[in-house]
């Protein structure tokens, strides 16, 4: 090896291109997708409004501030109208965004944590652990999600924490299945064997070698999970099983139910907010899925 290797010039040319993380490439692909960008913009605005809620709509959103059933666009004081008790619908939507986003995100985090833990354990170790955990996953999947959430919330006090946990608990099985499948597939790959041959322990293998490679499909699932968690919380509040001290879009839709024929806007305004946010999340999820798709980015995983 005294002569310089003939591949050296090619290598120098290659280095000229800036090094790109696989995740960075996926992000670039994501930014190239129009629905995903639109979704991200909408979500960013909603998040901003939720964070700034006390400034955007000062005061208690549950306070009666106007005549009941003011239609949207009639009064400057209540731009989106008022409900049966004269509460400002604009303030409700703004403050309701907090509840929806917080519960949606927190429940997804719970679902991801439990699902990843179960799926990774089952997929990595296989054998008896796999058998037991897969039965557990199937057990949860046979119970209708929403019914289980209703039962759990009915047993304990409906607070933001219990609702979040209940939604998280029903949303982990799909994640576990996904992660398990990824771990099984990746566990058989050469680089995992190579890491084992290099003397790495189980935890290192799971966290450092396999998990980062298993994440892309999990991330795209996560955004759809947030959407379904928001829907679930809305449904729960619509049925009157939400946190009574919390303004939430679902509770607002439910409150407008009785006057649907005379004042449909009371349900429609918060309903529209739910539709917009859920659609945005689905667009982002779809964009992420496409961005991570190796056939699209030309990268072989």
């Amino acid at each position: 090896m005294t002569a310089p290797s003939p591949s050296a010039p090619a290598a120098v040319a290659e280095t000229a291109a800036r090094p790109s993380r696989p995740t960075m490439r996926a992000l670039r692909a994501l930014v190239g997708s129009r629905p995903a960008v639109a979704g991200l913009v909408v979500l960013g605005l909603v998040a901003l409004v939720a964070i700034l809620a006390p400034f955007v709509a000062p005061g208690d959103p549950l306070a009666m501030v106007a005549r009941p059933f003011v239609r949207p666009g009639v009064s400057g004081a209540v731009p989106l109208g008022s409900d049966a008790l004269g509460r400002d619908l604009f303030a409700g939507v703004v403050h309701g965004a907090r509840a929806s986003l917080v519960i949606g995100l927190a429940a997804t985090v719970v679902g991801l944590l439990v699902g990843t833990l179960v799926g990774a354990t089952a997929g990595y170790f296989g054998g008896r652990a796999d058998l037991v955990l897969v039965r557990l996953i199937e057990l949860f999947q046979t119970i209708p999600n929403f019914v289980l959430v209703v039962v759990m919330v009915a047993i304990v006090q409906p607070t933001i924490v219990t609702i979040t946990l209940a939604i998280g608990i029903v949303s982990w099985p799909p994640v576990a299945r996904l992660v398990r499948a990824e771990f099984r597939a990746l566990g058989a790959r050469d680089f995992v064997l190579a890491a084992r041959a290099a003397g790495c322990g189980d935890l290192h293998m799971m966290l450092r070698e396999i998990l980062p490679n298993a994440l892309p499909p999990v991330i795209s699932t996560a955004s759809v999970m947030v959407a379904s968690a928001i829907l679930m919380e809305s449904a729960l509040s619509f049925l009157g099983m939400g946190d009574p001290n919390l303004v939430s879009w679902g509770a607002m839709v439910g409150a407008g139910r009785d006057s649907l024929r005379s004042a449909w806007h009371v349900s429609a305004v918060p309903g529209l907010a739910i539709v917009v946010v859920v659609l945005a999340l689905n667009f982002v999820g779809e964009g992420l899925e496409e961005a991570f798709d190796p056939r699209r980015t030309g990268e072989r995983r």
Partner: peptide, 25 residues
Amino acid sequence: ELTHLRGRRIAMVFQEPATALDPVM
């Protein structure tokens, strides 16, 4: 004992360098 042995006393070079390296590290 094997963990101590692997990589430290005995190391392995695999056939397919394209797949034996972690693609995201």
